[in-house]
Computed example of a mutant assay.
Amino acid sequence: MKIFLLIAVFSFAFFSCGTGNTSINSSPIDGNTKKDTVRIANDSLEYEIIIVEPGFQSWLISQPPRGFYGQAKLEGKNRQFVAEYNSRVLQPNLYSRNLYGEQINYDPTIDYGYEVNYLLYNYFVYFQEKYNQKFVGGRN
């Protein structure tokens, strides 16, 4: 069985939003954080993607709907964006650790399916807009 774990926990969101020193729990008091957490898992491939970013869910609603882009296009963009993101993680003297906390394990030989690629692509677009970052290849 192929073992691969894709964890895209953008912990930098906690630090950049000033919540790095508090824990997130599932209590009813913490309803806003729960609404801004996107989790997708596939037990057969043993991967998981978690996006914890305040405002991402409401921003996502205003974007082109699922099916607007083909999976091949999303995969191509995600390969570019992940490579650029991971490159910046390895250059902490040039890029903030608050934004680029840890590498994303994205294997282009694995078919993660449309939903994962759609959300990952949109997260990168959101990330670039929110934090004024420019990745090679941009949005489209």
Rank of each mutant, 00 (worst) to 15 (best):
Y100F: 14
T109I: 07
Q91M: 10
G101N: 10
W59N: 09
L60I: 05
W59M: 02
L90H: 12
E53F: 02
Y100A: 04
T37M: 12
E53P: 00
K130M: 07
D36I: 09
Y85E: 06
I51S: 00
E48V: 13
D43R: 15
Q91L: 11
P54H: 10
T109S: 12
R97E: 10
I110T: 05
I49T: 07
Q71W: 00
E102I: 14
V38Y: 12
I61V: 15
E115H: 09
P54G: 06
L45M: 12
I61W: 08
Y106P: 02
F68R: 03
I49Y: 01
Q80G: 14
E129W: 05
F127V: 03
V82I: 13
Y114N: 04
F68M: 01
A41Q: 13
R39W: 05
F68N: 01
F81G: 06
Q71D: 04
A41W: 07
D43V: 14
D107G: 03
G101R: 09
S87V: 11
P54T: 12
N42M: 04
F124N: 05
Y121F: 13
F56V: 08
A72H: 03
G101A: 12
Y114K: 01
K35N: 14
Y118S: 04
L74N: 00
G113E: 03
L94Y: 13
L119Q: 03
D43H: 15
L99S: 03
N78S: 03
V52P: 05
R88F: 08
L94W: 10
I50A: 13
Q63F: 04
L94R: 12
P65A: 07
E129P: 07
E48A: 08
K130R: 14
Y112W: 07
N117I: 02
E84Q: 10
L90G: 13
L90I: 14
T109H: 11
Y100D: 00
Y114Q: 01
Q128D: 08
A41Y: 08
Y47D: 09
V89S: 08
A72N: 04
D43P: 15
A83Q: 11
L90P: 13
L90D: 15
Y95K: 02
F56G: 03
S44Y: 11
V38D: 13
I110P: 04
Y121A: 04
Y85W: 05
